[in-house]
Write a protein that binds this DNA or RNA. Structure first.
Lengths: 223, 223
DNA sequence: TTGTATTTTTTTGTATACAACGTTGATTCT
DNA sequence: AGAATCAACGTTGTATACAAAAAAATACAA
């Protein structure tokens, strides 16, 4: 772990600031799986008392980003290949649900917005800036989630995305995936424009499957 | 709210004891949607300090059972019909995923176990003890979740079940649903015995759909 | 009476104190 | 040397104290 820094902009209870800070640090990889989250240490580093730290840890724990053992404290949750497979299976089911719902409810404006995101994604691929690419991909999918009009589902998909984030970044580094990614996005967009539920479901399945396989390969290579 | 009582068996941090206690109280309906969760009051009632209460509230909040507004405190989360629809859609997708996975991985022993649960469910329906009936239904589905061999999915389905629990109990009170429930359980069992993935998926869809419609009716009536 | 300022009270947010537990490493005994 | 024991330290668990904000009650003026 290195320099954590509090992001003290608007008024938020410190527990939320700490929660966000730690979550980002975990996703970014600054805090590695298995690394202990010691209250006093974190409190000193972030310049707050143990109380907000403890509450943030309880939230991270419920979010699946940390595990705590009573009387021993919390550590960053790790992920085995099996864990990741499990998450990816769930994500596939929910992504398909989201796109199906979207195909029923999407407005013309949202279709246009999605078209923009597809284009923006294509553009940003050229920059080879992984952070930006990942964000553009998130933006694309967020339009779909929003169109699905199910906030609870949106929350769950965001949570699942978090769990995968670290590995998915690796996937997005591999340029040979780019043409396929672009095509898949385009197909999903076309399907939504036609409100073709079965088609978008199938395209999304392929899209997520490809990612899932790549992520699994990456994990296997890391072990 | 009435008599909350701490369930102080094995060693668990107080935050977990409080968390369980409050969760049960919310699900049982002792704590009603919108009811404020005041730290001092709860601390006094449960005989602990504010610290474990606060941590438990953070957990409930991440679990979706409570909502907290900064500087105003937490209250029991309510559910509109739309919220419930959203949850039920997700649950359907995940139940189907679970039963499909189960159809791939279920062992003969688990099929036998499931057969037992079907029988037990049938038996317990005669007692008209709602608590027992609900538990027997949970037991049935838990065998499937376990066979699906995806702990993360199990956790999510349990959480969704929690959110629905209060209303589902009403559904289980209506005796005219019993014959259909028995038949649906039987069909899912048969499908799993044959490892017929498409069939169990379809039966589960029907099963969950029926419940979903009933629950939605109950909510509509409550409003 | 009504509306507004002011104060009082209640409640949350944060820090800190102290106790209990676990771990580690030294020390003693075999 | 190796195992067992114990002491010292570090860490978490829990309670409490104090500050700050919000809500409620009160007083006062129109």
């Amino acid at each position: 772990m290195q320099d954590l820094e509090l992001n003290t902009d608007a008024y938020l209870p410190l527990r939320d600031v700490v929660f966000n800070t730690l979550r980002e640090a975990i996703l970014r990889g600054d805090l590695k799986p298995g690394e202990r989250l010691m209250e006093l240490q974190l409190a000193a580093k972030l310049g707050v008392s143990r109380t907000p730290i403890r509450e943030a840890i309880r939230m991270l724990q419920q979010e699946g980003l940390a595990v705590t053992i009573p009387r021993r404290g919390a550590e960053v949750a790790g992920m085995t290949e099996k864990d990741m497979e499990d998450v990816l299976q769930i994500r596939e089911a929910l992504e398909i649900l989201a796109v199906q719902l979207a195909s029923e409810k999407v407005t013309d404006e949202q279709v246009d917005e999605l078209a923009e995101k597809v284009k923006a994604f294509e553009e940003v691929l050229k920059t080879k800036d992984i952070k930006q690419i990942a964000q553009a991909d998130i933006d694309f999918h967020d339009v779909i989630y929003t169109a699905a009009d199910n906030p609870k589902l949106l929350g769950m998909l965001n949570n699942l995305r978090e769990q995968i984030y670290r590995y998915r970044v690796e996937y997005l580094k591999d340029e040979k995936n780019y043409p396929r990614l672009i095509e898949e996005h385009q197909q999903i967009l076309d399907g939504l424009r036609r409100r073709d539920k079965a088609y978008v479901a199938e395209m999304t399945r392929t899209h997520v499957d490809n990612q899932a396989n790549a992520v699994k390969n990456i994990i296997r290579r890391q072990e």
